[in-house]
Design a protein around this nucleic acid. Structure first.
Lengths: 112, 112
DNA sequence: TAGCGTTATGTATTTACAAATATAACGAAA
DNA sequence: TTTCGTTATATTTGTAAATACATAACGCTA
């Protein structure tokens, strides 16, 4: 059995967490579901938890990441801004690059 | 205020955590203190917490990482094996490389 | 203006994890 | 055989985080 290396990356802004893997997953769910409550349900987390995450994301980001509308046709909904879509794309890219980088590095351990 | 990227890496063996930053810090303290109880105290964590961490490390590793002796002159003590010393060296090296790698990658976010 | 499905927010409860406490076992040395 | 400072382990207590529950607000539509 060989050693495996795992990693967790996240982006901070002004000492507050902006994006992590969980937040990115939630943003993706919002994009496909069109609403925060449905996104939360699809991921099995409470609406409140999801809301506080998105609230934190939007407060930390330089520009709005989602646009949440309350009331109106269908009761409202949530959608990603273009900036939000770009953020999750770049995050995924960095994360993927990190994994492949670490998979190379971990070989140093096998030689011991 | 620019975005910062943070990371946490850890090594797993057979789906159990072998090494993380906290465990490495504890191993270093054992090396300098010569005992598990003193190492725990120097890091401000309980002896039980420290012991269970080291127990987990030794159970996950391919070879022993520390040698713990009970009783005898001075009551006993704990020290790192050569293998343990090599592990923390390589871990620190990989971690450092990961940070510099991510610092380059994060620049992609600033352009958005 | 009543109804609907959202977003938004507060409060209480439960759960999980960390911390504290207690005690046994160990083995050399005096 | 008593003392000492460890390692080893169980049990209790405390604290913080997650979860659940409850309710207000919103704005379009019929």
């Amino acid at each position: 059995m060989s050693y495996k290396i795992k990693s967790r990356i996240w982006i901070e802004s002004d000492n507050h967490v902006l994006l992590g893997e969980g937040r990115v997953q939630l943003l993706k769910a919002i994009e496909t579901e069109g609403s925060l409550s449905k996104a939360a349900k699809s991921l099995g987390l409470s609406y409140k938890k999801a809301w506080s995450l998105i609230d934190s994301v939007n407060k930390s980001a330089k520009k709005p990441v989602t646009i949440n509308s309350t009331g109106g046709k269908g009761g409202g909904g949530a959608e990603l801004t273009d900036y939000g879509k770009q953020l999750i794309t770049v995050f995924d890219e960095i994360n993927q690059n990190c994994w492949t980088f670490l998979d190379e590095q971990v070989q140093k351990l096998e030689l011991l």
